[in-house]
Amino acid sequence: MKLFPKVLGILVVLAAVGGFIAMDIPLYDKIFYIFAAICVGSGAFVVFSRNIAYSAFSLLFAFFGVAGIYVLLGADFVGVSQLLIYVGGILVLFLFGMMLTSNIDKLREERPTMGRLLPGVIVASAICALLISVAWGVPAWRKAAVQVPTKGTNTTSLIGNLLMGDYALLFVASSIAILVALVGAAMIARSDRLSPEDAAERM
């Protein structure tokens, strides 16, 4: 009777979703909760799943959720950048890294030991509690009002101007950083690089 828990699970989820939809709260709030749930849920799946491939794919959803949060925060450009760079770039990189370094049939990690799990739980809960308490504990933050740029809600042109203006130096510097990182990554990952002993031997 493996079917029953699954059906029950589906029903519970459907009920929760229906209840959520029926809830009398603003649309903005609903959307926020949806994305928050996506973030937290898939973020949790990333770290709790022991299959590295599943982790990678749920990381995708976590990134997607974060992108949604960005959009909710009025940062449309950042959200789109998040989608493009994280989902389109970094995640693919992870998948490649995963595939190049693991046997496909050994994707499952062994169960973490207690001596490994315990510090993780302690530290994670401590920092989480700390951060949440701070987030809710500052009165000015709780009643902070939304601020919208005077030039309208389209941040792309604003960001473009800033990148070419105030942040031009940083922009160029980060481009150099990207270049260096790319060249360096290619250099490090090169397959024909000699080990020092081999190089000495060849000399």
Partner: peptide, 9 residues
Amino acid sequence: AILFALGIF
């Protein structure tokens, strides 16, 4: 904060 804690975990 939750994402951060998950990451640290």
